[in-house]
């Protein structure tokens, strides 16, 4: 079958979501799904169409041992692999690393040297496809009282109407993210860092950007989708 034909593809997606396929056909379809973005979209559309049928299924409380097994497993995974290596957005580590070196070289060396302050710590934030999209850097030798972060977008990010981008510090471990405030959609900008945030900055493990209601999250924690994240790396 030729799955680049929209109608065949849609039929395959519908049967896949309905779940009537044998194991062998299902496995073949899953292999196709890995490479075929159009098929993934069709599958998502069918999941949405049929989702209300789930309303007919009654809820049953699972025994407490299920939650214990889950927490044991995510706890172990983190001890083994560390904080950043199991973050979903960080999958294409190799791709990001090489891009990171390029970006770093650009930031550090390629612009008018006299105007550019030396950088002490830097984060390259990547999207869920591991593509670098933003560089956040902390200039060296700023006094603790008046720290500021420089933000450079590598491509214009689309800001949905009525929304704001908010920058977060990720303390790592089980600690919750701490806001650095709302940022503009401008390609380059500088934001002031409060004293409290300045004290936390040297200790965090990463930064992230989420999409929030205009003016920033109402809850004090990220409430919208996290679109970018990356580790915070000390270089000076």
């Amino acid at each position: 079958m030729r799955y680049d034909q929209p109608q065949l593809r849609d039929k395959l997606a519908a049967e896949y979501v309905l779940g009537t396929m044998t194991g062998r056909v299902r496995a073949r379809c899953q292999r196709l799904l890995r490479y075929n973005a159009a098929l993934r979209r069709d599958v998502a559309a069918w999941e949405m169409r049929l989702a209300p049928l789930t309303d007919l299924t009654s809820a049953v409380n699972p025994p407490a041992r299920v939650w214990r097994a889950i927490t044991a497993r995510i706890g172990n995974a983190r001890k083994k692999t560390g904080y950043w290596s199991d973050v979903g957005v960080w999958r294409g580590l190799a791709a990001v690393s090489s891009a990171f070196v390029l970006v770093l070289a650009t930031v550090l060396f390629s612009r008018e040297p006299p105007a550019e302050e030396p950088v002490s710590t830097i984060a390259v934030l990547a999207n869920d496809k591991s593509q670098p999209a933003m560089v956040v850097s902390l200039p060296a030798k700023t006094s603790a009282a008046q720290q500021h972060l420089k933000i450079k977008m590598l491509a214009q990010l689309e800001l949905p109407a009525g929304k704001s981008f908010e920058l977060w510090m990720l303390p790592g471990g089980a600690a919750t993210p701490v806001s650095l405030g709302v940022i503009k959609a401008d390609l380059t900008q500088t934001i002031q860092v409060t004293d409290a945030a300045s004290r936390l900055l040297p200790k965090i493990s990463g930064l992230a950007i989420s999409v929030e209601p205009a003016g920033g999250s109402k809850t004090g924690l990220p409430s919208g989708p996290v679109i970018l994240s990356g580790p915070w790396i000390k270089i000076l």
Binding site: V66, Y83, A174, L221, P222, P225
Partner: peptide, 28 residues
């Protein structure tokens, strides 16, 4: 959605809350 965003940042409390809200339906 907010809970899932916090899970993406490895907030275990958000994950526990997400489980509390959704596990019975999903177990069903």
């Amino acid at each position: 959605e907010a809970l899932l965003s916090r899970c993406a940042l490895h907030d275990q409390r958000a994950f526990a809350e997400l489980y509390r809200y959704t596990s019975a339906k999903l177990f069903g």
